[in-house]
Design a binder for these strands. Structure first.
Lengths: 188, 188
DNA sequence: GTCTATACGCGGATAGAC
DNA sequence: GTCTATCCGCGTATAGAC
């Protein structure tokens, strides 16, 4: 029998999505519960019917966001690295990603805040990055290459967002993309 | 005639140092003015004799910290890349740097918060990274290599801090270091 | 389950004494 | 220049009505 989502489940999902967009845009510490709930069209107090508090919401958001990102950035295992890598890099290392954090990956959007988060949050991050590294490690032939890929992608978005002009943002992205393609793909 | 620092200058310097350590440890948004001033051994209100407010303190801290970091990570122009790069990478991509953000570089410590900061803060970041890229671009022969180096170093520290076990932190650092040394240095 | 009202603490900033 | 006291707004969380 198929699982039928109740209205409560729908609301919970809405909170995860609205909350993710808000904290990716403004940061976790800087985002009040009220702002998230308003973005979802609800009052502040309604949060506590779904989560025990603000931090529990963060845990759920991080888990949901990373699952989505890993799905987007891995894809079919039978595809070759030469096919998959350019597609994923074009998507991730794009000016749109730099300029619209609320629609992008949660790792560069929260960045240092995830490094200070509690064990529950870090466990979600560790789990997702292990999956990512396992997938790309296999595809690229070396685990180290996948770890480098992950750091480089997150670092490039973080740094590009600090730049105050678009030309330098683009320059950073292009440098990273060209280098990764050249160095990680086996010679044709 | 040599410049003689007054007591006020000394206090200002103390606030920059104590403030930098606190916000690198806990983040800017999450750190109250009182905590910074207590760390400096002063009362909360004393801040406003030196800075117009919390944000002005951030601007000054970012400028001072980046100047320090750029000085540490560039050094003598006559030194070859093969000498300078291993030394700088050993220092930057170390477990100590991951585990002691208050003593380390401000870029991975604030990361996403700098991307959301105002124009004044971003101008400081842009200025410092331009210097960094100019120096290492010349040393490595290509501007792109320096941009990659910057993103990779910041990304690796940010990601390592998210990991919940030390072995994976070390693994990330090693992968980045080995790769950068191999790919950026001209073949011997 | 969601709302309104509210308790309670914290954060940034100012005023005035020393 | 620094301290203490204080204002005021915001943030998290809870209580109780519907």
């Amino acid at each position: 029998m198929r699982y039928s989502p109740s209205r409560k489940e729908d609301t919970r999902q809405l909170l995860l999505e609205a909350g993710a967009a808000e904290i990716k845009r403004h940061g976790f510490a800087a985002t009040g519960v009220d702002r998230i709930m308003q973005a979802a069209g609800l009052s502040g107090g309604a949060l506590y019917a779904h989560f025990s508090g603000k931090n529990a919401l963060l845990v759920a958001i991080v888990a949901a966001e990373l699952e989505k990102s890993v799905r987007l950035l891995t894809g079919k295992p039978e595809e070759s690295a030469a096919e998959a890598l350019p597609r994923c890099l074009d998507r991730y290392l794009s000016l749109e990603h730099v300029q619209q954090p609320e629609r992008g990956c949660i790792l560069p959007a929260l960045a240092a805040e995830l490094g200070r988060a509690d064990a529950e949050v870090k466990a979600e991050v560790s789990k997702a990055t292990r999956e990512f590294v396992a997938f790309w490690g296999a595809k690229l032939g070396k685990r180290e290459a996948a770890e480098l890929l992950l750091s480089q992608c997150v670092g490039a978005i973080v740094m590009a967002r600090m730049m105050d002009d678009e030309a330098r943002q683009q320059s950073l992205l292009d440098a990273s993309k060209a280098f990764l393609l050249k160095q990680l793909l086996p010679v044709q």
